[in-house]
Design a protein around this nucleic acid. Structure first.
Length: 180
DNA sequence: TTGGAGGCTTCTTATATATTGTGGTGAT
DNA sequence: ATCACCACAATATATAAGAAGCCTCCAA
């Protein structure tokens, strides 16, 4: 069972933005803008909701959603806000797509990571417990990276589609069970 | 000299370790 | 009152991806 814990998506608006003015109009705490610190303006509609980072060029990213649907619904709220403010005109047809899924999964048993380095292949793994407790596995057919922990818990990240993450985990699971 | 390439900044999220820091409590 | 000590919290470490803007470095 692969569970999505974070979705990163990006898109663009057909407009150049005056972030200073927008941040003033929207106000805190929904809008946060500190160009000295970072060039993007942050928008967060409510506590614990996904974060929307908006740039001068009109490009934006949405992080912290836990499903594709949530990403799209927050994009809608964002576009509605900007059209209500007459910043953009609807419909907004510029691109928007999911860039990264971060997922978790469990193998259901403890693992010997030192042994796993050998069975998964030295060239595909990195494991330096003094630096970080997780084993980093990069499948060569994969479009994802897997972090493996001694508890059997796993993080799959870097996929642009949930099916890819599920595939990666299924392959990984097979490799692990083969060597047990 | 200039431009391009690369690396860093910010943020999100799960995961798990070590380390640093802070606060409180007990004893002197 | 002041110091030792313990508990807990926060931060660092690492991963992916997007974005803009700054930096450094190297080549033409």
């Amino acid at each position: 069972m692969v569970e999505i814990v974070n979705v990163v998506a990006s898109g663009a608006l057909d407009a150049e933005l005056d972030l200073e003015r927008l941040a003033d109009d929207i106000g805190e705490p929904v809008a946060r803008y500190d160009p000295e610190k970072y060039p993007g303006m942050y928008l967060r509609f409510e506590e614990d909701a996904p974060l929307i980072t908006v740039y001068r060029t009109g490009k934006f990213i949405i992080t912290g959603a836990d499903s594709e649907e949530e990403s799209y619904s927050f994009r809608e709220r964002f576009l509605n806000l900007f059209s209500d403010m007459d910043v953009i005109e609807r419909p907004e047809n510029k691109w928007f797509s999911i860039q990264n899924y971060v997922c978790t999964a469990e193998l259901g048993q403890n693992l010997n990571l030192n042994a796993l380095v050998i069975s998964l292949g030295l060239e595909k793994t990195e494991y330096e417990p003094e630096q970080f407790p997780g084993l980093i596995y990069r499948p060569d057919n994969g479009n994802c990276v897997i972090l493996v922990f001694a508890t059997g818990k796993v993080v799959i990240t870097g996929s642009k589609q949930t099916a890819d993450a599920e595939c990666c985990f299924a392959d990984f699971k097979n490799s692990v069970y083969k060597t047990l």
